[in-house]
Amino acid sequence: MRRADRTLGVARGLGWFSIGLGVVELLAPRALARGLGLRGQEGLIAGYGAREIATGIGILASRDPTPWIWGRVAGDALDLGTLATGLGRRRGGAGVALAAVAGVTLLDVLCARALSSRRERQPVRSFADRRGMPKTPGQMRGAASDFEVPKDFRIPEALRPWTSAA
């Protein structure tokens, strides 16, 4: 498998992961809040779930997922900040979750950077010399004026109020 295909494969995997995590956050915010020591933050967790689902759809639906993967990196930063607030609580697995999110963040950053460099490597050719006509477009304008538009392709006179030719 080529490197570019592998990177796209990782991106798609992150897309599905986003959707899966988002569904859990959206459907079970209370259980998550309890487990992570974030009681009272259920609404925020559900909101993060919606964000994860939207990002996941964006990654899977786009031909170039680069901006969406960078979006995931930004979301990771939010997640890390939120989890950090639960660290001081006696009960809850915020520390374990922080480590897991940090790992995923690293993967997101590596994937986003690989996709971005792939984008930058694409050389852009200019086709400014591909006129397709023997003279400049200005000189060729109206060269086919001998063509008579068939009757069934003409726009009715009544629908041409803006032209002096009407």
Binding site: S126, M133, M140
Partner: peptide
Amino acid sequence: LLGARQVIAIDCVPERLSMAAAGG
């Protein structure tokens, strides 16, 4: 060729836009 006063082309791919500009 059919004589339009102004032709405007819309895309996001630079090389395609360069070819469109070459055509007028």
